[in-house]
Amino acid sequence: MKRTPDDPSGPTTADLWDRLRCTTPARIGLGRVGHALPLGEVLDFQLAHARARDAVHGVLDRDALGQALAPLPIVMVESAAADRAIYLRRPDLGRQLSPASARMLAELAPQDDPWDVLFVLGDGLSPGAVETRGPALVKAAIGELAGLSIGPVILAHQARVALGDPVGEALRARICVMIVGERPGLSVADSLGIYLTLAPRSGRRDSERNCISNIHDAGGLSCEEAARKLGWLVREALRRGLSGVGLKEEASLASPTVADLPPSSRPTP
């Protein structure tokens, strides 16, 4: 929807706003009706919010996801959060496996050599993002991990980032790569984040993970770029025996391509 500046009379002013708008994705120069926004802007905002809300409350279609991942083997698990309402109120439950899923994974654990890398696709706060680009991301990432053993792809319902810990622990993976739908914003509702954790087990701190965020096709990272960063991180984490802040600090010296952690001026919601 076209945004009109305060006063369309002078070409000077219109040109000015056009020029300023090129410098930022922020909603500037919207104009006004009385004290209010023009209706077009109101509806534009409402549509963006509605898309974000729909994204949060979407349901992960795991059958379709399994087909898109074929021929990779998949395993479906549930967190301890029984539904979306509980999931949103109880992040602690979204970090634990349901008792049934925990039992099932215990039986699946390899008897001999553990897998080097285990992928978990979790719905997070944007199930649609996982459906849209989760399979492509997993396949691109596996392409970057030649020579390493890869476990079955775990598809997780009502999952928070830290659900990868009990999953990875149960399957005795050396590294857990959690791919999760990020909290939708107004401009992008289908962004993925990757969280890598070495030696996953329940109780790992966020500072022990490496994050690659903003994976989407509206000016974010492409699946291929994200996969390359992940490939580098996985090999370095295995080689140095650490993940998280320590690896980030060393990596920032070795490779400028590694994503920064989120800014710290406010707690992450």
Binding site: R27, I28, H35, L37, L186, R266
Partner: peptide, 16 residues
């Protein structure tokens, strides 16, 4: 601007 914080991805009040 326009209630949309494009960095922190949340909605606050607008200039309006």
């Amino acid at each position: 601007p326009g209630s949309d914080d494009v960095m922190l991805s949340y909605q606050s009040l607008s200039y309006h």
